[in-house]
């Protein structure tokens, strides 16, 4: 029953022809699929991507385990709550990612990135070893540090271990190396002309504009040790992991820490005094606190001098405690 009575309609032929066309389409699809994943295509593969001795396949497991696609997109697929991750590594570089991921609740300031560049492996992957060269090579990292550094993000702190972080960076290195056929499109304008965008903070803009001598004079103004310490913890990215409150972010909060008795992982306990806090900043691995993992906090021995550490300890002391 497919045409007027008395008319030949060849319904059976038509149906067989449709199935034949479908078969041809299936063949085309299979053939195209087969040539899509050949080695000769030269697409990046995760097992061949190495980041600081870590392979990107492990990173793929981490990115799935944390369901990153539930907030972010990757190659454009996923949720639209956070930015796309595909080309992030190429834009911000490894040191920024290494500084960001352990304490994702806050945007890293330049100090935290600088600290990561002390690590030979990270500097090697970045291809530069000073923060100035890094900011030049990775303008997206510079933009993040200038505009967002030190402020809170909308991402929760996730319990990434040290190896999780490295594996994630390895995976993002792999996706950056992928040929995604021209997606995402490269913008042709400097985005910061957008009217509703959060403006550059005045301080960062002035620092960018001001001649270097003036900046030098500015730091010469005398300050109290506590106030200087408060500045240093922002500049060096300490506050990405430590809150000035009782809240434990990645590391313990500072409010009430000074003078309290801290239980260590080996079962002993110690009073958090000047000597202990100084040691924590210089050699964080020496005495690990119970409930925390070794290797999360980096050493600041190469970054801060004795006076600066004393000021930071003074600042922590000022936050109270016994």
């Amino acid at each position: 029953m497919s045409c007027k009575p008395g008319e030949l309609c060849y319904e059976g032929v038509k149906r067989r022809r449709a199935l034949a066309a479908l078969g041809l389409m299936a063949l085309i699809f299979v053939a195209l699929s087969a040539v899509s994943f050949l080695d000769s295509r030269g697409q990046a593969v995760p097992s061949a991507v190495d980041y600081a001795g870590v392979d990107a396949v492990a990173g793929k497991r981490v990115i799935q385990a944390y369901n990153c696609m539930g907030c972010h997109t990757i190659v454009g697929n996923g949720a639209y709550f956070g930015p796309d991750l595909t080309k992030l590594y190429a834009a911000v570089g490894p040191a920024w990612l290494e500084a960001f991921l352990p304490s994702a609740g806050a945007w890293p300031a330049s100090g935290a990135v600088k600290l990561k560049l002390q690590d030979k492996a990270i500097a090697g992957e970045a291809g530069v070893d000073t923060i100035e060269a890094y900011m030049e090579k990775y303008p997206a990292a510079a933009e993040r540090i200038d505009r967002r550094g030190g402020t809170a993000t909308h991402m929760p702190n996730l319990p990434f271990s040290r190896s999780d972080v490295q594996e994630l960076v390895a995976f993002l290195k792999y996706t950056s190396e992928m040929n995604t056929e021209g997606w995402p499109p490269v913008p042709k304008v400097d985005g910061l002309t957008f009217r509703e965008a959060t403006p550059m903070p005045v301080a960062a803009r002035q620092a960018a504009l001001a001649p270097t001598e003036e900046a030098g004079q500015a730091t010469a103004t005398p300050k109290s040790a506590t106030a200087h310490g408060a500045e240093l913890v922002e500049e060096n990215g300490c506050t990405a992991c430590h809150a000035p409150t009782k809240e434990n972010l990645v590391g313990p909060g500072w409010d009430g820490l000074y003078g309290s008795t801290v239980k260590l992982a080996d079962g002993s306990s110690v009073v958090a005094d000047d000597a202990y806090l100084t040691e924590k900043i210089l050699k964080p691995e020496a005495r690990v606190v119970e409930g925390y993992e070794a290797g999360v906090m980096p050493s600041f021995a190469e970054i801060l001098d004795a006076d600066q550490i004393a000021d930071i300890v003074a600042y922590i002391r000022s936050l109270g405690g016994n």
Binding site: P83, R147, P187, D190, T198
Partner: peptide, 14 residues
């Protein structure tokens, strides 16, 4: 905002 202007800060721009 995101693709044409290239603003990728979801909290601050997008």
């Amino acid at each position: 905002v995101y693709r044409t202007l290239g603003l990728d800060w979801f909290g601050g721009d997008v």
